[in-house]
Structure formats: structure tokens, C-alpha cells
Design a protein around this nucleic acid. Structure first.
Length: 424
DNA sequence: TCTGGGGTCCTAGGACCC
DNA sequence: TCTGGGGTCCTAGGACCC
């Protein structure tokens, strides 16, 4: 049996690269993309990283540097990134149908059956194609396991001479290469585990691959053990070509400025609830549990309060009003007067496919009568006319809960008005 | 003034049952 | 004086990912 071969294709500094596609003047300049509400920096171009700025830095903290270094900050434009992402994935699918879309900017490809090719050259062809078709730079790591493909990608990104592609499979300097990678950069090792490993002298990926497996299992569970096996070339994490159905749906946002009244919280939570139930219907699912939480601003030196509560519906549903009344009840119960609230959120869970919703003799369920039709009708109108064109009275002024996005670029690829013009 | 949002998986421990 | 043991289910919390 031949060893499997995985490739990880990862778009370099994806959000920043997307902004550059339609604004080539940004080439070579430091760019940062801000989170919702223009809060923290979530994506950085290499030039911005080189200035010593870290992911997670609040935008306002570097405001004084913008002019000096010609830094360009943008509000996140997920409509644009999402659209370019699906174009990248479609292009990759032309190379192999065995593909797992792992995140907005990454995909695992199975290269099984292509071992006879020069996989480095094959990777470079993929890379050139994506660059030519979409103007986006990608890096490609290849290895016998997903974890090693990820590690190879890490190397491909950092060593210029590799030209963005690296196959680590059976590499003569395998040991030295893994030794050069700090455990924190290994897929599956986060901040806490990296601390634990360093404390115990396991500083790099090579040492991790040699670590006693019983100790790993005990301290890092079966998940950590899988990572170690994968570093040893034993594939434990398969390619998942079909997206697994979601098990929970969360919708939450921080407020631009503090909120104090129950009324306002109700409106915000209702609008998140509407969004969450829309997603639920998009995936043809139904949920039977809803949780609402709220919290004050932990960065502020003022009285803090956080709480949550959930309600179980008698039957799974995707009928928005079922959830809206639950939201109302919960918020009324957990709300305390006198605090400045920063965030409220809604989470739907216990999700099942809607064909599995049981029928009830005595009460209308989500699936029978006109409820389904009403919801579908609303969803269709909103899809066509824009989000929240048709909505529920309960959200009041909620349309104004819209995020702060002061530095938003146009929706170049998804809105007729925003399509770039070329002047002759 | 201004500090994100949306997910998954695993385990320990309690409740409950026989 | 003696105070079981094993199985299952659920939940909270902690770790991780992007």
C-alpha cells in the first residue's frame, strides 16, 4: 500500500491579498484588516508584520503610526473575501476533485495516485494558476499526513528559495527541518500546550515527534497523541470532502458603544437570533436549544457582569418566532440594571436535519402548516433584496445595530454598482 | 472613544440506574 | 461493625482551529 500524500494550499495573508487584487497600488505597502466594528487587526500583510505589529492589536493603538509608515487599514469586507475564496476553491477543484475546504483561505488536496509526478513541480503549477487567474499568492505544503503538509507549508512560506512550494515527504533533511520548527507552529499545538511542552524541554517539532506517547496522551489527550503520530508520518486525520453538518450556530457581536437598557439588548439579540435562524434554514436544519448570553466590557475598570441561560423548545424548529420569544424570556431573566453592556450573543444547538423533526398531534411544528412557507418566502425576499429587507417588528431600530465599518472597500465582485471600471 | 466572531473535540465528574 | 460496583448519559470547562 502506498503512503497517502496530502497538499495544503494556503492563501498568503488572504484578506490583505484580496484588498490588493482590486487596488494594485497597495502592492508592497503595509496593510491591516480590522475585525467587526473596526476593533482589532485580524489580518496583516508581510510589510505590516515586519513593522512588529501583531495580529490582535486594537486598531486605535497604531493610529499614530499610520501616516509615518504609510499603513493602510481596512474594515473587513467578508462579502469580497468569501467570493474570492469560492473562486480559489473552484480553481483548485480543477486539479483534483479530492479536496477539503478547510477554511476561508485553506484547502487540503489529496494527491494520491500522483506520486509518479514531480509533486514540487505540480505544486508550482497550481500556484502559478491561482496567481494568474485570481491574482492571489498561495503557498503549498506537501506531506504524508495533514499535520506534515501543514508543517511543510510553514516552511514553504518562510524559505524564499522554495518559491512557495515544499514537499517534505522523505526529505533527506527531515530531522533538521522539524528541529527548526517551534512546537507553537505545529497544527494542533496552541498556546497552553506549547507552554506545557516548553516547560518539559520539548521545544521543537522533532522533539515532539520523539516524545513519550504515554505522557503525551496523559497530558494532551488523544488529540495531542494524534498530532505526534502524524509528525511520524502515520496519517490519523483523513480528508473530509463533505462538509459535516453544523452542530451549533452562534451569532453575536460587540457593541460600538456601551448599551444599558433591556430594550436595546432585546433588539440586538433579536436581530442576531433572526440571522442565526436564517443560517439554520439555509442548511435545512432545525434546532431545539437556544442560549443567550450577555457581558460587560472586561477591559474597563467598572462593575462587571456576565450571564447566560438556555431554553429547550418542546420540538426542534427553524421557525424564527419560536426563538424570538425564547430570547425575550431569557434576556428578561438574566438582565441586571446598572451595568454597561458590551456584547450579547445567541447560540442555537441540538441541531438535526429538518426531515428528522418529529410530528406532533397537538401543536403545529416547524414543518407542517404554513410556517415553513412563510419562512422560506421571507428568506427568498431577503436574499434578493438584501439582508433584513423584510424582518420582524421585535428588532425595532435593530437595523442600526449595524457594525462600525468606516474603512470598507467596495464589493467589487458581488455588487453591480461596485464593479471596477476600466477607462480607455 | 476605540480591544472579533464562529466553530470543533475531548474529558472529568455528577446524576442516575440496576 | 459493616457502607458496592459498573454502566450510561449529560454538562461544564478547557483545549484547539481559522
Amino acid at each position: 500500500m502506498s503512503i497517502p500524500r496530502f497538499a495544503l494550499v494556503d492563501c498568503n495573508n488572504f484578506y490583505a491579498a484580496c484588498e490588493r487584487v482590486f487596488n494594485p497600488e497597495l502592492e508592497g505597502k503595509p496593510i491591516g484588516i480590522l475585525s467587526n466594528n473596526d476593533g482589532i487587526i485580524v489580518a496583516l500583510s508581510n510589510e505590516l508584520k515586519e513593522l512588529g505589529i501583531k495580529r490582535g492589536t486594537p486598531g486605535f493603538k497604531i493610529r499614530h503610526l499610520l501616516k509615518k509608515h504609510d499603513i493602510h487599514l481596512f474594515s473587513s469586507n467578508y462579502t469580497l473575501y468569501g467570493d474570492l475564496s469560492s473562486r480559489v476553491m473552484e480553481s483548485l477543484a480543477k486539479f483534483t476533485p479530492d479536496l477539503e475546504i478547510y477554511s476561508i483561505d485553506e484547502a487540503f488536496l489529496s494527491l494520491d495516485g500522483l506520486e509518479h509526478l514531480d509533486l514540487n513541480a505540480y505544486g508550482r503549477e497550481i500556484r502559478t494558476t491561482i496567481k494568474r487567474w485570481l491574482g492571489l499568492p498561495v503557498s503549498i505544503g506537501i506531506g504524508p499526513t495533514k499535520t506534515l503538509a501543514k508543517a511543510a507549508n510553514h516552511v514553504a512560506k518562510r524559505r524564499k528559495e522554495l518559491k512557495g512550494v515544499f514537499d517534505i515527504t522523505g526529505h533527506p533533511e527531515f530531522e533538521q527541518i522539524l528541529t527548526s520548527i517551534d512546537v507553537i507552529n505545529i497544527w494542533g499545538i496552541g498556546f497552553q500546550y506549547a507552554k506545557l511542552l516548553h516547560r518539559n524541554g520539548v521545544h521543537n517539532a522533532w522533539l515532539l515527534s520523539r516524545a513519550p506517547q504515554r505522557w503525551i496522551k496523559k497530558r494532551m489527550t488523544i488529540v495531542g497523541l494524534r498530532t505526534v503520530m502524524e509528525l511520524n508520518g502515520i496519517s490519523c486525520i483523513d480528508l473530509e470532502e463533505k462538509a459535516a453538518p453544523r452542530k451549533e450556530i452562534v451569532s453575536s457581536k460587540s457593541f460600538g458603544k456601551p448599551v444599558t437598557t433591556l430594550q436595546e439588548l432585546q433588539e440586538a439579540a433579536s436581530s442576531y437570533c433572526i440571522r442565526a435562524t436564517e443560517k439554520l434554514r439555509e442548511e435545512k436544519q432545525a434546532a431545539s436549544q437556544i442560549m443567550v448570553y450577555l457581558t460587560t466590557n472586561r477591559f474597563k475598570n467598572e462593575p462587571q457582569y456576565a450571564n447566560f441561560q438556555s431554553i429547550r423548545l418542546p420540538l426542534p424548529s427553524a421557525y424564527t418566532p419560536d426563538f424570538l420569544s425564547a430570547v425575550k424570556k431569557i434576556l428578561k431573566y438574566i438582565y441586571r440594571e446598572g451595568y454597561k453592556y458590551k456584547k450579547v450573543g445567541v447560540m442555537l444547538s441540538d441541531i438535526i436535519p429538518r426531515e428528522m423533526v418529529p410530528l406532533d398531534f397537538f401543536a403545529p411544528t416547524y414543518l407542517d402548516d404554513r410556517r415553513l412557507t412563510i419562512m422560506e418566502c421571507m428568506d427568498n425576499i431577503n436574499r434578493k433584496m438584501g439582508m433584513n429587507k423584510l424582518t420582524f417588528a421585535g428588532i425595532g431600530k435593530a437595523r442600526n445595530w449595524k457594525m462600525k465599518r468606516e474603512m470598507l472597500t467596495p464589493h467589487y465582485t458581488t455588487n453591480w454598482k461596485d464593479i471596477p471600471l476600466v477607462r480607455a
